[in-house]
């Protein structure tokens, strides 16, 4: 299967989140409680367990795209409308508020499902 910059980034973020929350099993007793982080992980590892697209992975440096290390909202977060996840990669915000929504900015959705908004499409 093809590994890309996108899958590597997804892996890095999920792995970092798992390391921070120590949430290995969905039915752990305290899975619904907020976890605290005692310092950031030393590094974010991207496992390459199979033949991967070496060009994509050799260009991808997870250290340059560190996921959020501190458990909690980004500095800019507030409970008001000021929250903007667009600064986080991959973009989690699911489109802008609808009143100002302009579909011109969307690409063709090739996966059947809700739109996926990424800042860049690194797929080959």
């Amino acid at each position: 299967m093809k590994k890309t910059k996108k899958t590597a980034l997804t892996a890095a973020i999920l792995l970092a989140a798992a390391n921070m929350t120590s949430c290995d099993f969905p039915w752990s007793a305290d899975k619904n409680e907020e976890k605290t982080v005692y310092g950031p992980p030393d590094s974010v590892e991207v496992k390459d367990s199979s033949d991967a697209d070496s060009n994509a992975l050799s260009e991808f440096d997870p250290a340059s795209e560190m996921p959020q290390l501190e458990y909690g909202p980004p500095d800019m977060f507030s409970d008001s409308d000021d929250f903007d996840a667009s600064s986080e990669d991959p973009q989690d915000v699911y489109g802008p508020p609808v009143d100002s929504y302009d579909p011109e900015g969307d690409d063709v959705q090739t996966e059947y499902g809700a739109p996926e908004f990424l800042e860049s499409d690194g797929d080959s």
Binding site: I13, G72, F77, A85, E88, P97
Partner: peptide, 19 residues
């Protein structure tokens, strides 16, 4: 698990978008 508060915030935006 990814930050739940971030997820909630984004899903709230999505709910508005859906409306």
């Amino acid at each position: 698990m990814l930050d739940v508060r971030t997820k909630h915030a984004n899903m709230e935006k999505l709910a508005e978008y859906r409306k």
